[in-house]
């Protein structure tokens, strides 16, 4: 469904920020993209949705179904976003429009892609809020982003992303800005929703234990290149590349420190 083939992203100076990256995500798959800052993981995510910032050029190919996300007409890509692929970013406060109540933000893609109006649209918005386990949907729908907590905002962002039943959800560090207990709830929610709807997931994170919780086949990015790809369980048990080993060892260090205190 998503095919990334020899994707290279260069800046104006011609420096490659992402180089020769290839992977694919099939229907219902849960792919992981792990990397530290500067590894190119977020640029790869932006290339997948065809929204690279100006000044960066992509070569190679990114295809979502029949649509090229880096070549061809922008008009075609607009049709794909929200409907075929949707995104959830790290910071829901920047993903949401501060001047628009949450309900209207969720309504927008539903009106556009599912052509609902009036009561049907209103019901769909409430159903979407219900689905992300937000109670008191009337109040939430009327609230502006700043009136919501970080966890509620991320739930609204997820509701918005999944409202049009995309085939692929790109989640870029969706829980990094959240408290640990809220993170656990949001991961459970994502887990359940992508399962229920058979949505494919491209989960991007720097956090190995978080990736282990939701991702399956996982790619390790370092300085713009994929250094290793394997099911996450194998990566953790038998990291082949020295860099993956360093990552796994670092994560295990804190995990073990905590483990020593737990009975």
């Amino acid at each position: 469904m998503l095919t990334v083939d020899r994707l290279t992203i260069r800046n104006r100076a011609g420096r490659a920020l992402v180089e020769d990256v290839s992977f694919s995500v099939g229907p219902g798959d849960r792919a992981g993209l792990i990397g530290e800052s500067g590894s190119g993981k977020s640029l790869t995510a932006l290339a997948v949705i065809g929204l690279l910032p100006p000044g960066l050029t992509a070569t190679g190919e990114v295809r979502l179904g029949d649509t090229s996300m880096i070549k061809g007409q922008e008009k075609l890509r607009t049709r794909v976003r929200g409907k075929v692929v949707a995104t959830v970013f790290q910071e829901p406060l920047t993903a949401l429009d501060p001047l628009m109540p949450a309900g209207r933000q969720i309504a927008e893609p539903i009106r556009r892609f599912r052509s609902l109006r009036g009561t049907a649209l209103r019901d769909a918005v409430h159903a979407a809020l219900d689905e992300v386990r937000l109670t008191d949907t009337d109040r939430i729908a009327r609230s502006y982003p700043h009136e919501l907590s970080g966890g509620q905002r991320q739930r609204v962002a997820i509701a918005m992303a999944l409202a049009c039943r995309p085939q692929l959800l790109v989640a870029d560090e969706p829980t990094t800005a959240l408290d640990v207990t809220v993170q656990a709830e949001i991961l459970d929610l994502l887990d359940r929703l992508v399962d229920t709807h058979g949505t494919a997931l491209l989960f991007i994170t720097h956090d190995l234990p978080v990736a282990a919780r939701v991702a399956r086949h996982t790619h390790v990015l370092r300085e713009g290149r994929i250094v290793e790809s394997a099911p996450i369980a194998d990566l953790l048990a038998r990291p082949a590349h020295p860099y993956t080993r360093t990552l796994v060892d670092s994560a295990r260090r804190f995990d073990a420190a905590l483990g020593r205190h737990l009975s």
């Binding site: 234990p209 919780r213 953790l236 905590l258 737990l262």
Partner: peptide
């Protein structure tokens, strides 16, 4: 190791482990 407050227990349960 032996949290006595419900909030501490919830916090510990929420930590993603390897």
């Amino acid at each position: 190791g032996a949290p006595s407050h419900p909030y501490t227990r919830r916090l510990l349960q929420s930590v993603p482990r390897l």
